[in-house]
């Protein structure tokens, strides 16, 4: 799995590509920890190029969600392939993650929330 990071105002945007599984879950958790330790607690994950996720990858996702909530932050997801979305739906994790169709819509939601 490859991870690239860019910052969009107060949101750290991470783009995931490849496979999120047992071998890569810790890599994602480490990167999120780096983001949180840098003072940002708003994280967006763009999953446009994520080809594969299994239950180990989902476990890593739940772990980072808990860590971000612990720091009173916010995690959003976007651009899921149909297959990835199906895995989130089957496991009902789509109920606890904020999932947006596009990165643009996800980032816009942060601006809207900041204005309230």
């Amino acid at each position: 799995m490859e991870l690239t990071r860019r910052d969009a105002d107060m949101v750290a945007v991470l783009s995931l590509s490849g496979r999120l599984d047992l071998a890569n879950g810790n890599k994602l958790k480490d990167e999120i920890k780096t983001v949180l330790d840098s003072g940002k607690n708003a994280v967006h994950l763009c999953m446009k190029d994520l080809e594969f996720v299994n239950s180990s990858g989902l476990g890593a996702m739940v772990s980072i969600m808990k860590e971000i909530r612990l720091r009173r932050g916010r995690l959003t997801l976007s651009d899921m392939a149909d297959y990835v979305r199906e895995v989130f739906d089957i496991t009902q994790l789509s109920h606890i993650f904020e999932i947006f169709p596009t990165e643009e819509e996800a980032l816009h939601s942060y601006q809207t929330a900041a204005q309230i």
Binding site: N54, S55, G59, V62, K66, I90, T91, Q92, L93, H95
Partner: peptide, 17 residues
């Protein structure tokens, strides 16, 4: 899956589906 916040235990559900 009893608790959506648990980190493991989803594998069998996915295989069956």
């Amino acid at each position: 899956i009893v608790d959506l916040w648990q980190e493991g235990g989803r594998g069998m559900m996915l295989i069956k589906r």
